[in-house]
Every structure is written in C-alpha cells, then in structure tokens.
C-alpha cells in the first residue's frame, strides 16, 4: 500500500550482525535489519525466540545483566550505540513498555513526571502539569485518573497500569517506542484502545512492537520480522507475509497457526 513512501523513509535503527548470548548459550543472531523512521516494526515469534533480548540490546539494558553478551552493531541515527558513553541519555530517547505493567510505587502523577524530573527537564510546575496531562490523554487514561492523580500508581487496575506505563514512556518524548508484548495482562477492549493510540503515535516516533499475537502485528505493523529459536527467519512487508507470500515456509506455518 504505502510501500513506496515507506522505503524512501530515513533509517532510524540499523542492526548489523547482532548476536546475543547468555553465558555461552546463544539466544539470538546473527540479525541484520533496518528499522525506518515513523514506522511500526513488528517482531513476532514464539517464546524463547530472542525477541526481548533484541529489545534489551537496543537500549543497552544488557549492562544490567552480567551474563548477557552482545556482539555486532546497532546504530541509531547512524551512531553506534556501543560507543555511547552516556547510556542514560540513550535510554531517554527510547520509551519502553514491558509485558507486565509496572506501576512504580509513586503517585499516578509522579509516575508520569518521573522521567522529566530525572532528566532535569521538568520545567515549571505548570509546564509539568501540562506534560503529565498530555501524556495521560495520549495514553487514553486521562479521563479515568484525572481525579486521583495523587493515588498510588501501583494500585490501578492492570489495564490502567499498562496505559500508565505508556504515558510514562511518552513523557520523555522518545524518538523510539519499544513495546514488549504489552497486551499480555490487558483485556481486549483496552488492547484495542492502546492499538489505536499506537497508530496515532506512529507519525511522531518509530515504534518497535514485539508481540506473540500474530494478528496484532497484522493490524499494526508496517513491516514484520519473524524470530524463531534465536534466528531471524524473515523480514518483510506485513501485508506480504500475511498474504501467504512469505519466502520461508516456517513463516507461513507460524502465521497460519500451524505451530507456536
């Protein structure tokens, strides 16, 4: 559909020969792919395919895990992330939404205001108020929490907490938004609302959507990569993959529901 425009878009993330191992046990790789600016890039595959490891390598969360070994190159805006000296600044460019909602034990307001405060970009109280409201609105949560911004974020319902997590990820105005199976703990109605939010956000940021719901990738992603047992089997336009035009038979089988 929009192939011609998409392929002309700028490359945001360039992954070259990326391999990830945990203490000698290979988890992923080698992976070579490009993620373009302002697209939703889907990553599908069954459990243990290296999808989460892939995300962790992008925002350098491997630094937190002593036994996680990452080799190869990931370039964001043509700068090698391995050479970033200040990983905290790198992570501020990247919003992350985890599989299970993590409402930090702070108030709803403080949850969203945390990132700007950490970065020292909170500005005046009025500016921060406005930012918090804008992020909560965009995460489709504002109407439900506007009267209880002072309540503990960790006491919201699962679906609300997940939208709170999205609002929090948006609060740092990320250039890249990574979602890791965000709908696992969320009801279908909330899932659809979040999906609508993502479609709107696409114009402003690059979105990496890791999901084990094949149809979710079909609904949202412009292009999709299929990971299987640590191997990147195939990358293609979502439409083609789901029309049975996948080059690899395993992709067809997985999308067709024959396994996984």
């Amino acid at each position: 559909m929009v192939n011609s425009t998409v392929s002309r878009a700028k490359i945001k993330i360039e992954v070259k020969d990326l391999s990830i191992a945990y203490g000698g046990h290979k988890a992923l790789g080698p992976v070579n792919l490009d993620i373009r600016e302002s697209e939703i890039f889907g990553v599908i595959g069954p459990a243990n395919s290296g999808k989460t490891s892939f995300l962790n390598a992008i925002n350098r969360m491997d630094m937190m895990r002593t036994n996680m070994n990452v080799t190869g190159n990931i370039r964001i805006d043509d700068i090698d992330t391995r050479n970033w000296r200040n990983v905290y600044a790198l992570r501020r460019k990247i919003g992350v939404v985890f599989p299970l909602p993590v409402g930090l034990p702070l108030s709803v307001y403080d949850n969203v205001a945390l990132a700007p405060r950490l970065a020292g970009t909170a500005g005046t109280q009025a500016q921060l108020d406005e930012l918090v409201e804008r992020c909560l609105r965009r995460a489709a949560l504002w109407d439900e929490v506007k009267d209880r911004l002072g309540h503990l974020g960790s006491l919201l319902s699962g679906g609300q907490q997940q939208r709170l997590t999205i609002a929090r990820a948006l609060s740092q105005s990320p250039e890249i938004l990574m979602l890791d199976e965000f709908s696992i703990a969320v009801d279908p109605v909330t899932t659809m609302r979040i999906e609508d939010v993502l479609k709107e956000l696409k114009s402003e940021m690059t979105i990496i959507l890791v999901t084990n719901l094949v149809q979710q990738a079909n609904r949202l992603a412009d292009r999709t990569a299929f990971f299987l047992n640590g191997e990147c089997v195939e990358i293609g336009e979502t439409e083609q993959l789901f029309n049975g035009q996948a080059k690899d038979q395993r992709t067809n089988d997985y999308i067709g529901g024959k396994f996984g």
């Binding site: 905290y88 930090l104 950490l118 997590t165």
Partner: peptide, 15 residues
Amino acid sequence: TYREAAEALGATRWQ
C-alpha cells in the same frame, strides 16, 4: 521490574 522500569526511563543507578 521497578529497577528495569526506572533504568529504561534513563535513570542512573543513583536516581
């Protein structure tokens, strides 16, 4: 998960 969430937001260890 709290640590990971905070670090993913760009928080330093001390923060």
